[in-house]
């Protein structure tokens, strides 16, 4: 069983569109019936918008604990406010309350409250979903607005996808990863067999790409790079590919800027299914051929 994670240095590079196209190409090619999909970009869980899956099950996801002050026991001494380093204790008319968004869950206030008026409570942070898409089972999640802890949720989504792949002997787990380099990304890449980084030929593209590649190197995950919207700045695309060569990272192709991608998004279809002959679709098929060859080689 192989785990492929699709990543990007920042949002909006077309990562999810590419993942949806991969799901389509994998499930309609030699990996048919072998794919399990995971949307690990839980802050912007968009893969389902392109795959329109049928929901099979939903369950609540408890996030970190946050403090709660029992107003009946609180004597408004204000000690909690002085020990909190996250400005999560707010005073209102001489009463104190916890701002659950600012609370980091450290429980310092709990340990210091002389009245024992503060306790920790897990907060509903979001939901885990299990769905069936045209291209295979999909594990995804939704965070409630303003919730953190997406690293933990990412780990759970991946764990579910991996578990189903192992149980049903499916060969490929395709993960739509979160953008950036923070906790959710780390959670999405650790233990993956291969990462495909979607780069953009923008001014910050090379910089964003480098940070993502540093993260992958740090966690010893093999990386491949594809350049999306490459024709918007061919010289910058050349530079990205040259930088990759210097780092010993293989590049697997260029996808052109193509309005067919946006049309497919609105239609709720992968572009390779919606307009198979569009320039972007042709390029994506080539990219997928190269990525899947590497995946098989890594077997």
């Amino acid at each position: 069983m192989k785990q492929l994670v699709v990543l990007s240095g920042k949002g909006g590079t077309g990562k999810t569109c590419l993942t949806a196209a991969f799901a389509h190409l994998a499930a309609t090619g030699p990996w048919a019936e072998q794919v399990v999909l995971a949307d690990a970009d839980v802050d912007a869980a968009n893969l389902e918008l392109m795959l329109r899956p049928r929901l099979l099950a939903a369950e609540e996801f408890q996030g970190g604990k946050v403090a709660r002050i029992d107003p009946a026991a609180c004597t408004a001494c204000g000690i909690c406010e002085t020990v909190c380093r996250f400005e999560a204790i707010v005073a209102h008319d001489g009463r104190f309350a916890v701002d659950p968004i600012a609370c980091e869950g450290c429980a310092a206030c709990v340990h210091h409250c002389p009245e024992g008026a503060i306790s920790m409570h897990p907060e509903l942070a979001g939901h885990l979903y299990h769905s069936e898409s045209r291209y295979g089972p999909l594990h995804h999640a939704g965070l409630l607005p303003g919730q953190e802890n997406s690293g933990k949720l990412v780990a759970l989504v991946r764990q579910r996808a991996r578990g189903q792949a192992l149980a049903e002997r499916r060969e490929l787990v395709l993960v739509d990863g979160p953008p950036g380099i923070g906790c959710p990304v780390i959670s999405a890449v650790t233990g993956a067999d291969l990462a495909l980084v979607v780069a953009e030929p923008s001014v910050s593209g090379a910089h964003d790409l480098n940070r993502t590649l540093d993260t992958l190197a740090h966690f010893r995950v093999r990386a491949l790079v594809a350049v999306n919207r490459a024709d918007l700045r061919p010289a910058a695309s050349d530079e990205i590919e040259a930088r990759c060569r210097e780092r010993g990272v293989a590049t697997v192709g260029r996808v052109p800027f193509d309005l067919a991608v946006a049309r497919a998004m609105v239609a709720g279809e992968p572009v390779t299914a919606n307009e198979p002959e569009a320039a972007a679709s042709r390029a994506l098929r080539e990219v997928w051929e190269r990525v899947s060859a590497v995946l098989r080689g890594a077997a």
């Binding site: 999810t16 802050d43 912007a44 869980a45 968009n46 918008l49 968004i101 965070l143 607005p145 303003g146 946006a262 998004m265 609105v266 709720g268």
Partner: peptide, 18 residues
């Protein structure tokens, strides 16, 4: 003006309200 944009907007608006 896409399903992605709408989805993400619906996530952030409640925070603004809160």
């Amino acid at each position: 003006p896409t399903p992605f944009g709408l989805h993400d907007l619906r996530q952030v608006v409640p925070i603004a309200t809160e």
